[in-house]
């Protein structure tokens, strides 16, 4: 038992010694995105309680193990918190909150995808992180514009949100189907 603990500590020390700056900063970015998304999505009352620690652990976990299923779990917990807050606690669907949650979820997801293939001790060219970040920001920008337009349409239709959601959802479903078809054809 003590031997296992000692060897695990030695391994951790080795990891800390070998770690390089860029992968470390990437993991910090994942943790920050996850924590802020969790804070924005979940009701403030819950985040002020003792459950906040558990939620923050779930949010930070993908930064520690980016190759596992932690990132998926963390994203699902954020979505669950959003539904709980807007449905259970009756919070208003504010534009800034939708934008924040969508942006932070996607940035966390994208950084996790990069961290999953980038070893913690890698020597990384800055153009790797730069081009990856630019691509993620372009996606975020496009979706932000779409969000503003869609939420504007929903308020203009005054109660036609169901219709807008159906239309957008159907478009998304068609897009997802096309994507999956293409992937299956490749395989």
């Amino acid at each position: 038992m003590i031997d296992r603990l000692t060897s695990r500590l030695a391994r951790m020390r080795r990891v800390v010694d070998r770690a390089t700056l860029t992968p470390f900063l990437l993991r910090c970015g994942i943790a920050v995105c996850g924590a802020i998304a969790m804070l924005v999505a979940w009701p403030a009352a819950l985040m002020a309680s003792r459950y906040a620690a558990l939620l923050l652990i779930v949010a930070v976990y993908p930064a520690v193990v980016p190759r596992g299923r932690g990132a998926t779990l963390s994203a699902l917990v954020v979505v669950a918190g959003w539904i709980v807050d807007t449905t259970g606690y009756g919070a208003e669907v504010a534009l800034w909150r939708v934008l924040s949650v969508a942006t932070l979820l996607y940035l966390g997801h994208s950084l996790t995808a990069l961290a999953a293939v980038l070893p913690y001790d890698a020597v990384v060219n800055l153009d790797v992180v730069g081009s990856w970040g630019v691509r993620a920001l372009v996606v975020v920008l496009i979706s932000a514009v779409l969000t503003v337009i869609a939420l504007g349409l929903a308020s203009a239709l005054a109660g036609g949100a169901f219709l807008v959601a159906t239309m957008v959802g159907l478009c998304g479903a068609v897009g997802a189907t096309l994507l999956l078809t293409r992937l299956l054809r490749r395989a």
Binding site: T72, A75, L76, V79, W82, I83, T86, T87, V93, V98, V101, A102, T103, L105, Y106, H109, S110, R135, A136, V138, V139, V140, I142, S143, L146, T147, A150, L151, A154, A161, F162, V164, A165, T166, V168, G169, L170, G172, A173, G175, A176, L179
Partner: peptide, 30 residues
């Protein structure tokens, strides 16, 4: 996430859920 948010958005009539999933769909498409 894209599929789940689309389904939930359509089911509950919540455009915000669809929009939260939009970056994932756009990112995959690009």
């Amino acid at each position: 996430l894209t599929g789940l948010l689309l389904v939930l958005g359509v089911a509950f009539g919540r455009v915000d859920l669809v929009l939260i999933g939009a970056p994932f769909a756009i990112g995959a498409a690009i």
